[in-house]
């Protein structure tokens, strides 16, 4: 590595990035500030960024509003299972789309995109009906009759999200960028397609799996509408459902909501920071060399 003088465009770039970052962060800063105020101060017409007195008690109060350890546990389980399985399914399908030609490939691929184009509001009801008639679960018989199926179950929060068109598409695009030399080298070795995937592609997929993992984690953790519809009992609540506890008939306890929001966001931030180094690990070259 040779030392070099930092060129001017990069200095300009730094300032622009810093400015954008601060602007992006400002609303969150206000969230933190609100979480430390009293309700009277939140509603007061004069605004202060730094609260009059720091109400750390808000955080304790927010967590006392429900069975939060259980909500976190539920969200953690649901998110980790969804993310792990969907990473495997999506990368496998993306790999297949990107690297092989087979009859029906085009149709199957475009069909994937169609699923993204219809808003949730319309597909909600048929999906819910399928959940309630899910065979062999929740007291249902093999034809899906007699019980409540996957309604009010954590499994019902996982299954529909295991295969996201988004993930399949992203993995496909990523693998399209891989040099084809890898495949050729592997086929000389006589590696089967499965081994090609598991031994060469997966080890080189750090950036895409990290990016997809972070986005999928965020999405699952923050999912609100589906759990709201599917879950009825407090013991199955996710963190996002827990956040509804601060809405009352006559307004919202904003300070507590903001405090809880920050605690709910923290795990996501940790995951993001942990995954960061994988986004930026040079990949393909090492794949070629290896």
């Amino acid at each position: 590595m040779s030392t070099r003088k930092i060129p001017l465009p990069e200095i300009i770039a730094f300032f622009i990035v810093a400015l954008v970052a601060i602007l992006m962060f400002l609303p969150f800063l206000l969230t933190i500030s609100t979480s430390l105020k009293t309700m009277a101060e939140v509603e007061s017409p004069e605004f202060r960024l730094i609260p009059e007195s720091f109400q750390w008690q808000n955080y304790a109060d927010a967590m006392a509003s429900g069975n939060w350890s259980r909500y976190f546990m539920n969200s953690l389980l649901i998110t980790s299972i969804t993310v792990c399985l969907s990473l495997i399914f999506n990368s496998l399908a993306g790999f297949s789309f990107a690297r092989f030609t087979f009859p029906g490939r085009g149709v199957l691929f475009y069909l994937i995109l169609i699923g993204l184009m219809v808003p949730e509001q319309v597909t909600l009801i048929p999906l819910f009906k399928m959940m309630s008639n899910f065979p062999l679960f929740g007291g249902n018989n093999i034809l899906g009759q007699g019980g409540t199926g996957l309604i009010n179950s954590r499994l019902g929060l996982i299954i529909p999200y295991l295969a996201a068109p988004f993930g399949i598409f992203l993995c496909r695009q990523f693998y399209l960028g891989f040099p084809k030399a890898i495949d050729d080298a592997a086929s000389i070795d006589g590696a089967s397609k499965w081994r090609l995937y598991a031994q060469i592609y997966i080890p080189s997929s750090g950036p895409v799996l990290a990016a997809l993992g972070v986005l999928k984690t965020t999405h699952t953790w923050n999912n609100y509408l589906w759990p709201l519809i599917l879950i009825n009992s407090d013991e199955m609540y996710t963190v996002q459902l827990g956040l509804t506890k601060f809405r009352t008939a006559y307004g919202v306890e904003w300070n507590l909501l903001m405090a809880a929001t920050i605690l709910v966001v923290l795990p996501l931030l940790v995951i993001f920071l942990l995954a960061q180094k994988h986004f930026v690990s040079g990949v393909v070259t090492s794949g070629v060399k290896g």
């Binding site: 792990c84 399985l85 929740g138 007291g139 996957l150 009010n152 179950s153 499994l155």
Partner: peptide, 21 residues
């Protein structure tokens, strides 16, 4: 990963079956 997931899925499924019972 697959092993852990299937165990977890099984536990979940059982949980919901119990309440149904």
């Amino acid at each position: 990963i697959i092993l852990i997931s299937s165990v977890a899925l099984y536990t979940f499924a059982n949980g919901s079956q119990e309440t149904a019972a």
